[in-house]
Amino acid sequence: MRIVMAGASGFLGTRLADQLRQSGHDVHRLVRQPGTWDPGQGRLDPEALAGADAVINLAGANIGAQRWTAAYKRVLRASRVNTTDTIARTLAKLPAADRPRTLLQASAVGWYGDTGDREVTEDAPAGSTFLADLCRVWEAAARPAEDAGVRVALLRTAPVLDRTGSLLKPLLPLFKLGGGARIGGGRQWMSWISLPDWLGATEFLLEREDLAGPVNLVSDKQCTNLEFTRALARQLRRPALFAVPGPVLDLVLGELAGEAQRSQRAIPGVLRDAGFSWAYPDIESALAAALRPEPPIGR
């Protein structure tokens, strides 16, 4: 399968491109170049997509890279919406014979906002938080491709567990020093997925032409923040005796702290019904896999 990928140099994109190539696919990175691929200007040479079997769009600025100032919120929005809109409109304009059949479009479980103890599947409405609104306009930007007959799967991804990025990378130094802590009372639910399962689910969706629309890329078994904290401490053989009060998080992280304190219990309804099998469905096995050293090169 010939695949064009935007966001191929990011944490997830790099690993997905490697896995797809190992599976025998021909992966082409969509590299920003003036006059050819410039989503800020809404410009994409149709020839970059013509003749491909699928397009995967994972582009977007890092949600947790810095405090959510008004300026950075605009960056988060533009980096997602402009890229998606440009790709979707370019796909729609291509002749049907040259148009890729599939678009795997990044999104996030932030769509649901705070769900409390309530389980939510893909048919749940968007929440009322900044991230929920961001996901709403992000997904809507893919609609021109869908209207043109492209199969669009919206990858509502949870934080991905791997020691080299996403949720775990900033936490590991603290936990290794014995400073691991639950957030508040720790009763809030967390959505997450192991890196191998995210890669497997994305490739699964690439190949399943009968699946379209929103898909929750989350673990099969959810956990609370307290359960996550204790499991990570056990894996590292370190204590985790503390709690971080909400006001302290607010002071350090600003509005981003609200996301860390919300309860979200997203369920992988589409993947379950489609028969996807998780390699690491529970938090203990997922953390063990995420923290396992990589084998030396050549072995």
Rank of each mutant, 00 (worst) to 15 (best):
R2A: 08
I3T: 10
I3G: 02
M5P: 12
G7K: 03
G7W: 01
L16T: 11
D18M: 13
D18E: 15
Q19E: 14
Q22W: 04
G24V: 09
H25D: 14
R32E: 10
P34S: 11
D38P: 10
G42L: 11
R43H: 15
L44C: 12
L44W: 02
G51N: 03
N57I: 00
A59S: 15
A61P: 11
N62W: 07
N62E: 14
I63A: 14
Q66D: 12
R67W: 09
Y72S: 09
V75G: 09
V75F: 10
S79C: 08
R80A: 08
V81K: 12
D85K: 15
D85E: 15
D85L: 15
T86Q: 10
A88G: 07
R89S: 12
T90D: 10
L94G: 05
R99C: 09
R101G: 15
S107N: 10
A108M: 06
G113A: 07
D117I: 06
A126E: 05
S128M: 12
F130A: 10
L134P: 05
R136N: 09
V137R: 12
A140Q: 15
A141I: 08
A142D: 04
P144H: 05
E146T: 11
G149Y: 02
G149H: 02
R151E: 04
R151W: 08
A153W: 00
A153C: 11
L155W: 00
A158C: 04
V160T: 07
K169D: 08
L171H: 07
F175I: 08
G178S: 12
G179V: 01
G179N: 04
A181M: 07
R182W: 04
R182I: 05
G185Q: 10
G185W: 01
G185S: 13
G186E: 05
R187D: 13
R187Y: 06
R187P: 02
Q188K: 04
W189H: 12
M190T: 08
P196G: 08
D197N: 04
L199M: 06
A201I: 03
E203Q: 14
F204P: 03
L206P: 00
E207N: 11
E209W: 01
E209D: 13
L211R: 05
A212W: 01
G213K: 04
L217H: 00
K221A: 13
K221V: 14
K221T: 14
Q222R: 11
T229V: 04
A233M: 04
R234D: 12
R237V: 05
R238M: 06
V244C: 07
P247W: 10
V248M: 11
L256P: 01
A257M: 03
E259G: 06
A260P: 01
R265A: 03
A266D: 04
G269C: 06
G269L: 07
V270T: 11
D273H: 11
D273E: 15
A274M: 01
G275F: 03
Y280I: 10
D282S: 14
I283H: 05
A286Y: 10
A288P: 13
A289T: 10
A290K: 10
G298T: 14
